[in-house]
Amino acid sequence: MVNETATAGEVRVVRLRVNGELRSALAPVHATLLEVLREQLGLTGTKHGCELGECGACTVLVDGRPQLSCLALPVQVEGREITTIEGMAVGPDLHPLQRSFVETGAVQCGYCTPGMLLTAAALLEEQPHPSRAEVEAALAGNLCRCTGYVKIVDAVLLAADRAGTGRMPDGPVDGAGA
């Protein structure tokens, strides 16, 4: 007979504040934050490309700072505010960075995009008017294979510029389908 509870190890209830909601999950302590977000909480917007800290695809925000969820243990971030890509838009309204990514063509395959967006959000929080070089430095832990980074950096600068001048377009993004 097949035993369906093959996985043991130390299991605990972790209570995480994710995107403003208090979520709890019963998880082995050796499951990373990445695994718990994707597999237990259904937040598959967080991507992964190596699980070893080498690509940045799994970046989430912990208390507003970018961290690699593949190298974080949920028990270590209990009580802290976790933001994933699913928490960036407010309801149906895109975050200014999400909007500028869409408009500038900063998204190709989109696999690096969640990590890029969250990292960029943390940067603009700390430095609302970054130079091109500062944006590149901030995103340097997030690999992208599609864009050559050009339009990603453009998009971050566009969002910063709009925030600075208060020129924020509203309404649906021109031409983009849902």
């Binding site: 967080t46 699913e86 960036m88 895109l94 999400q98 869409v102 998204v107 967006l117």
Partner: peptide
């Protein structure tokens, strides 16, 4: 025209 991709919004929102 340089229109945004049709799947971009889904991608930026995860």
């Amino acid at each position: 025209r340089p229109l945004p991709k049709v799947d971009a919004v889904a991608k930026v929102t995860g």
